[in-house]
Design a protein around this nucleic acid. Structure first.
Lengths: 343, 343
DNA sequence: CTGAAAGCGCTTACAG
DNA sequence: CTGAAAGCGCTTACAG
């Protein structure tokens, strides 16, 4: 084509505001340049952070995001899976309660999927996991070092794989100390469950000296209940969580927790999915496991009496605050002493 | 069709796992049952809450959500608008920096849009607004009642309509008191801007007794900077914000702020868009304005010395906590005294 | 290099 | 009631 003709056409396109019709183009090219994201919810600190990571990688690859919150409803999840054909090129799903066969039954066969839930029961799909076991294990070790021997674990939802891995880490670590007494109280990852767990924990005799909630939301619920009951944290009882959601730094006392690289989880999942889309299918690749970090703040009592060592130099800007904090980051052991969030 | 035949077909559909192809169906029906959501970012407390509201209404109407974070990039926003044809049925956009004509130029004409940014410059589209002016005005009145006369306002981004409405409310309310001295320091809605604003505020003489940040993120930045500087809040200086993001309740001291019904903003916008999609176009309807509420917590000093009145009865469960708090909700005046978040 | 035809997977009138 | 044809707006070989 001559250069001039090309220019004339370009101008005409611009003048008439011509834009290709998405559905028509997708129908013939078999590509939508869209990724489906299926999550239990679309809001809340954990999912918000996860979406951030997914969005980051997707936009870089030129993909749009079709998001869907299942709200735990099995039928809604399946409906979403069925609606996928001809709408998106791949799927990222965090659906711990959905059995593996639900994917096979409702998705076109061979459809590219990356699973974010721990199970990894579907051989045909790629999956990314978090080292829940290791994180919980080192949290218990940390509590032991602080002298705790009676620890109560507030569990997550029964069928949730992440939750049961955290519990397994708790149990195994507790077993290593013969003198230790491990207790468990049921929860479901929601703040309210932590709130309710607290009263059971306070009643039990001898009373545990530390509470380890399977996630931060429940730990925060425990904190609320203890404040109501007039029980001081960490002086009378230590409270720790798992996830390191943003609120954990802001609450009083700041929460000692296990940091899950949430945004990275989303980024990696997306990168893998895009890789599968470019490549010609092939093997799903081996499951990837993301490291966790123990983040020590005030709620476990470690910072108690070390006030002289505090060198508060919180930097502004939510983006890079974690970097510029005067943290003691012992990368080798995966421990981060965050004294800046202490009150 | 005979009942039996129908059943046989149903069974075949199920057996073969037949699902209609989305693109093909959309191409012929001209419907995608998908709504596009264009936001500056997909994460953070404000947007997360907004998406929650949108998702709620969209799922109820049977619509999917195609979300897109523009990250403030003009070209990315325009690219998104152009990609819309044949992909979604309508658009909800929060894009304060995008001029009205960008919508006309990049969208198919007559395309259903609901704008969430205050300007409302595009007559062809529906829009929902927040009473930014009234919220800021009553915040200043509250500070005046507490005896403040020298107040510094940390502004939002220059081109942002919400931000300038808040500033206008600040200015007008300050003007009503002849003895008052109003000052302004530039900001951009990000936490870091608040952090930097604080040092300027501390240097000015005579020093302001209160800081009113145009949003909570900046107020939190101010709080951080003041803590570093060893200036006590609210004893030495009061700090208040705007939005009522979740963190504002958790931070110490809990932040007095103006509550924007964020989720409702999303729900209403979606409801309007769906209404337009069902109806045959017609008029865009008059712009709707959502009320704000003054939420009084510790950071303004109002709760100081009223500790005896505290009746902490925080209920658990993040969903209904705001209802079950022992709040004094003076609906008539739009003031809510939240003493439960006091420390 | 250019133009016309075929076809993606559906739905919607329209004959039979 | 049932089946075959036309067509949604594109892209991709394929003739000319």
């Amino acid at each position: 084509v001559r250069e001039e003709t090309r220019r004339r056409i370009r101008r005409a396109i611009h003048r008439l505001r011509y834009v290709p019709h998405g559905a028509a183009k997708s129908l013939i090219t078999r590509k939508t340049h869209t990724l489906a994201v299926l999550l239990p919810d679309l809001y809340g600190e954990f999912f918000s952070e996860l979406i951030r990571g997914i969005d980051l990688a997707a936009r870089k690859g030129g993909y749009h995001l079709l998001v869907s919150g299942s709200h735990g409803s099995r039928s809604e999840m399946e409906a979403m899976l069925r609606a996928i054909r001809g709408r998106v090129d791949g799927l990222i799903a965090l659906a711990p309660d959905l059995p593996a066969r639900a994917f096979d039954e409702n998705l076109p066969q061979g459809f590219p999927v990356v699973l974010l839930n721990g199970g990894g029961r579907r051989a045909a799909s790629s999956s990314i996991r978090v080292d829940n076991y290791g994180g919980a294990f080192s949290m218990v070790r940390h509590l032991m070092r602080l002298g705790h021997r009676a620890v109560t674990f507030v569990t997550g939802p029964p069928s949730n794989h992440d939750a049961s891995e955290r519990r397994r880490g708790f149990r195994d670590a507790m077993r290593r100390k013969p003198a230790a007494t491990a207790r468990e109280v049921p929860g479901d990852f929601r703040e309210e469950a932590g709130y309710r767990a607290a009263s059971r924990i306070l009643k039990a005799r001898p009373r545990s000296t530390a509470v380890f909630a399977a996630n931060d939301a429940m730990a925060i619920g425990v904190l609320y209940a203890l404040r109501e009951a007039g029980v001081r944290v960490p002086e009378e009882i230590a409270v720790v969580g798992f996830d390191d959601i943003p609120t954990s730094r802001f609450i009083t006392p700041a929460l000692t927790t296990v940091r899950v690289p949430i945004a990275e989880l989303g980024t990696r999942a997306t990168a893998r999915l895009l890789h599968a889309l470019r490549g010609s299918g092939g093997s799903p690749g081996r499951p990837e496991t993301l490291r966790t970090t123990l983040v020590v703040r005030a709620s476990c009592g470690y910072l108690q009496g070390r006030a002289s060592a505090r060198s508060i130099s919180v930097a502004a800007g939510s983006q890079d605050r974690s970097q510029s904090m005067s943290d003691v980051d012992d990368s080798a052991s995966g421990i981060l002493i965050d004294s800046t969030s202490e009150f």
